[in-house]
């Protein structure tokens, strides 16, 4: 890269940051802040950097960000009308969306949406994306886009992504790759579940409660778990997540000591087993993948 190109890139990043800041401050509507489509996004993924909660300012915006964070951490308790099971956003987006490889929110900001979504068959907004989780992974009802709760969650997402240029690829985005040619062995998965997973998620997948009756680890199947429309109900999606992230508190590295207990094949086996246990239906599934391209591990 020449120095001229570097300078251009720096200016672009500065503009993006400025725009993201203005969006957060509510000064510029998200649509205006979007990168022009003809501009090529930066080739190299940007570093995965988590801003510090301790640096959130003690003002109205800061309070909104913290409220959004709290909704992400304690979704079921705080939004009982919208959460039909007992999961929280952080059940899958570990650390409140701050862990690389655990579907982090960093890079998931208003400035990076609308985005193409093959499952929906059209572009979706960040609010659509969040509501997808409410209806699938949390087997509940969507939040109104103009509700204080949705605005707070979006404010938290935007704060996490303030230093990410719009549409930039971020290191550690998503849940990483898994070899989809591996053939799952559900019987082996059941055995593994018993030895490696049941201690936290319960022998019958019912999760684990503390003495106060609050769920500490989420149920993985049954009425109080995610429905068939959730990404986690798909074998390879679940396997990729498990391989990188399960269990937490197992290793001496990473923000949560997460992952490292299973091989890729074992993750596929155990994912096949638990994802195919009985769980709520998702009637709106009939609208998914209207333009084709349904992945082979979709549950319908």
């Amino acid at each position: 890269m020449t120095s001229e190109q570097l300078k251009m890139k720096k200016m672009r990043i500065m503009r993006h940051t400025l725009m993201a800041g203005l969006v957060i401050m509510g000064l510029v509507p998200p649509a205006l802040a979007q990168t022009p489509t003809q501009e090529t996004p930066p080739a190299a993924p940007v570093k995965f950097l988590v801003p510090r909660l301790a640096d959130i300012p003690d003002d109205a915006n800061g309070k909104q960000i913290l409220y959004g964070r709290r909704l992400v951490m304690e979704t079921a308790r705080l939004l009982p009308s919208n959460v039909g099971d007992v999961l929280n956003c952080t059940s899958c987006h570990l650390g409140g969306g701050t862990v690389a490889g655990a579907s982090p929110f960093i890079g998931q900001s208003s400035a990076s949406y609308p985005r193409d979504n093959p499952r929906a068959g059209h572009k979706v907004t960040l609010e659509d994306r969040i509501n997808g989780c409410f209806q699938r992974s949390m087997n509940g009802k969507p939040l109104a886009n103009d509700s204080a709760e949705m605005k707070a969650m979006v404010a938290y997402f935007n704060w996490l992504s303030a230093d990410v240029p719009p549409h930039a690829k971020v290191e550690g985005a998503g849940i990483g790759k898994i070899d989809k040619t591996l053939v799952p062995d559900a019987a082996h998965g059941k055995e593994l579940y018993g030895t490696k997973c049941a201690v936290c998620h319960g022998t019958d997948g019912q999760g684990l409660k503390n003495a106060k009756g609050e769920f500490v680890f989420p149920p993985l199947w049954g009425d109080r778990s995610f429905n068939v429309g959730a990404g986690m109900a798909r074998t390879y999606t679940a396997a990729a997540f498990i391989k990188r992230n399960m269990p937490i508190g197992y290793g001496l590295n990473g923000p949560l000591g997460q992952g490292g207990a299973l091989t890729e094949q074992e993750a596929v086996d155990v994912a096949e087993y638990f994802s195919h246990q009985p769980r709520p239906d998702f009637p709106a599934k009939v609208n998914d993948w209207p333009n084709g391209g349904k992945p082979k591990d979709a549950r319908y």
């Binding site: 510090r52 503390n210 500490v216």
Partner: peptide, 19 residues
């Protein structure tokens, strides 16, 4: 804030951990 960022996932908001 530091607790909520680095510790809360395992040790829980109420400091109760998981038995």
């Amino acid at each position: 804030a530091n607790y909520n960022q680095f510790c809360v996932t395992c040790h829980r908001p109420d400091g109760g951990g998981a038995p």
